[in-house]
Design a binder for these strands. Structure first.
Lengths: 202, 202
DNA sequence: AAGTTGTCGAGACATTCTGTCTCGGCAAGT
DNA sequence: ACTTGCCGAGACAGAATGTCTCGACAACTT
């Protein structure tokens, strides 16, 4: 590692440029005018040179994905209503409401498409998805500790049902994604858990 | 319509070329070497001119989606075991097993990515998804007629829970997609239906 | 204060891909 | 025989990615 041998010399990374790039990326991704986000437009809008982007990110997809992850990681508080169904309903409502916005949905769609092509973007997508899944998994684990979910239940599959529905609707766009769907899915999942619990107890 | 006024003159469409294009498309889509499928490679591999492709399809995405739909839409029989859980287990096992194959998974991933960019591909994807959803919806409707699913249940959401998990795992690749997952999800969904049924009855 | 190192914005550049256009050849009907 | 429209092949324009080079300059060392 050159890090330990020589701390750092020369000019440091311009944080303002980094922020401008990520902010503009979200902004352009959110446009739903069909125009794809290009590196040139991104650099121009952020007021930076293209090389400044490629110096810090390996590809266009990586920039867009990081911008999206930063955006989507915020504004989803983890609720604590005391019941599985209540927690799920609050969490899913916040999540679906976020992903259902035209701007965010557009970001998600572009990022997932990019992740299928670009290995760098794919890694970032995996990391992003994993971080989101961990939050929901934690919510379910607390419910399991309270005895609302059977010990043998497949939490990963429950998580997948949530994010599966979300991505599926975002990517295909065949149905809405809002509070109604969140409430319905929260009910479905807590019903699932309750039924399995009854099985184990009986 | 010129169709009725003048039946058709001149050389007819070459069916062999059409088949070659679609077959080669599936072949190239299935490659998981990261190389994107280009029109040039497609035309070259099929031994046709580019114009022959663009004469019959509006865009690259449209070709790929049609090829994908042709491949993925087959070989999923609709079971009739007499119970919701049995039907679901059989249907999901066949569906997941198909989508879990490396080649088919690669085709699906590429196609979904294409559908995010190309409006023509997007339409085809919608149609394909709709046709698949209809089959599963039919299966659920029969269960509802038998009284295994409550009248007020949201069948569309149950369908999304299935295909959502499928697409999510195919696209992100964070977990397996096979018989075990099919069985678990079938159980979860039938439990969910049973719980809702109990609510309505009680 | 001078020197070194690495980032900055800007833009030329090669490469690749899409989709259009044109060409001579030819097959299917009249 | 003659007309019409598809065929393979490839040139072409347009757009995008990612590399490279340039002079400027900021941060840190000596």
């Amino acid at each position: 590692m050159s890090d330990s041998r020589r701390p750092h010399t020369g000019r440091r990374r311009n944080e303002a440029a980094r922020r401008a790039i990520l902010d503009v990326a979200v902004d352009l991704l959110g446009r739903d005018d069909g125009a794809p986000v290009t590196i040139d437009s991104l650099a121009a809008a952020a007021g930076v040179g293209k090389q400044t982007i490629y110096r810090w990110w390996p590809s266009k997809g990586a920039v867009l994905l990081e911008a999206m992850a930063e955006r989507a990681g915020t504004d989803i508080p983890v609720p604590d209503t005391g019941t599985l169904r209540g927690d799920l309903e609050a969490f899913l409502a916040a999540t679906f409401r976020g992903a259902g916005q035209r701007l965010t949905a557009s970001v998600l769609r572009n990022s997932m498409a990019e992740a299928q092509r670009d290995p760098h973007a794919r890694e970032h997508m995996r990391a992003f998805v994993e971080s989101r899944r961990r939050v929901l998994t934690g919510l379910l684990e607390r419910a399991r500790d309270r005895g609302e979910i059977a010990a043998g239940a497949d939490l990963a599959l429950m998580v997948d049902q949530v994010y599966g529905v979300l991505w599926y609707r975002v990517l295909v766009g065949h149905g809405p994604l809002g509070d109604a769907q969140a409430a319905e899915l929260a009910r479905a999942l807590s019903d699932q858990a309750a039924a399995r619990l009854g099985d184990a107890a009986g």
